[in-house]
Computed example of a mutant assay.
Amino acid sequence: MQQIFKNIKGDRLIWAIVALLAILSFLPVYSAASNLAYRGGGSNTFTFFIKHFVHLLLGFSIMYGVHKIPYRYFRGLSLVMIPIVLVLLTITILQGTTVEGASASRWIQIPFVNMSFQTSTFAAVVLMVYVARYLSKMKDKTITFKSSILPLWMPVFLVLALILPSNFSTTAIIFTMVLVLVFLGGYPVKYLAVILGSGIIALTFFVLVAKTTEGPLRVKVNTWENRIKNYWNGEDTEADYQIEKAKIAIASGKIKGVGPGKSIQKNFLPQSSSDFIFAIIIEEYGLIGGFLIMLLYLWLLFRVVIVAQKADTVFGKLLVLGVGLPIIFQALINMAVAVELFPVTGQTLPLISSGGTSIWMTCLAIGIILSVSARREEIKQQEINEDNPLEILSETI
């Protein structure tokens, strides 16, 4: 065990927070999985428990492997991965998968194994690394709107255009996070207003075109409109079934909760082990459990900011913020949806919800953050050694 801890580098508190979130996920997932087991016919909850354990084990393996890679290598890797991401997203959208008549081309099947992979989640991480790379390269240069269109905004809009038809919420989150990152990276605000306006115009054009056609895209756009209208109007329709069950679960939990595994709404709430697991957590563990989860994410945010502040390069700072902030943002959106502060988005709760791709990509992002903090530790150790010549002599002998 001591040897394992010796090989773990980077911010130890981030390791602890991530491990704690993973451990706390097991009981809610195991409890909520009863709904999936019932719908699945001959399955049982333990099968989903083992599946979740395997996803987390693979995720932590990814995180461990990535945190061993010097973060400067991610600068060049992002250039290589952007074309690969575009190809994967194109393959995904060409599948033409539909659910209840709406476009739902989000996953591709991994060859030789019975597993699917959500390409948009991987694209989000790669894109944020790419944007951090561009901003760090242009840090001491004058950025003009014309010079940034092709190297910065073209890849961003291509990725978003390929994700939008099947997943509006992910597109909106990625676009928002890119805007936040370029603002923090010193991109001129006057150009950001142009980009934001262009994004709104592009979305409006897409919606208008989709509504004039017959097929999955029109159904998808109508779904988006209904969710937003129902949210603002407060109407009780069939589309609000998930929110209503989530609110019942939260109300049932009160302060201390009904107890582990005793949730009633998990049997009626769709996506109870993924999109709406926060409602099940509050039902079983009360507001105390809900606030504990929220505090862990806020603590993670605090550590991400600390690592970014201490990073030794501009690229390191932007890289940490680029891949770290979306994790917290997604978690807050998931929790906001469960308590009806936000329309239904379909976003999972990072490291807690079931689902392999979400766990793996979150662990990939955290591995990158740990790689940056590990470099800071190396520099600090070198400074200590330089201040202690006797220590260097003893290590040489």
Rank of each mutant, 00 (worst) to 15 (best):
E383W: 11
L158H: 08
F60V: 10
V221P: 08
D240S: 15
V178A: 06
L192R: 08
A239P: 08
L208F: 11
S116L: 05
K6I: 13
M63A: 05
V182C: 08
V87K: 08
H55C: 03
G41C: 15
L370Q: 01
D240C: 14
K141I: 11
A331F: 05
L24T: 11
N267F: 12
F168E: 09
Y30V: 02
V372W: 00
N167E: 13
I17T: 10
S166F: 05
K137L: 13
A251Q: 14
I293K: 06
R39T: 15
V209N: 13
L325G: 07
M81C: 15
L269F: 10
N7H: 13
G289R: 09
A32N: 01
S166W: 03
V80F: 15
H55W: 09
L321Y: 08
F276E: 05
K6F: 07
S61T: 15
L94H: 10
G197W: 02
I62C: 04
Q118D: 11
I14V: 10
F329H: 07
K310Y: 03
S147Y: 07
L351K: 02
I359E: 04
N226M: 11
I84P: 02
M1P: 09
T176S: 10
F60P: 07
E283S: 03
T345Y: 02
L300N: 01
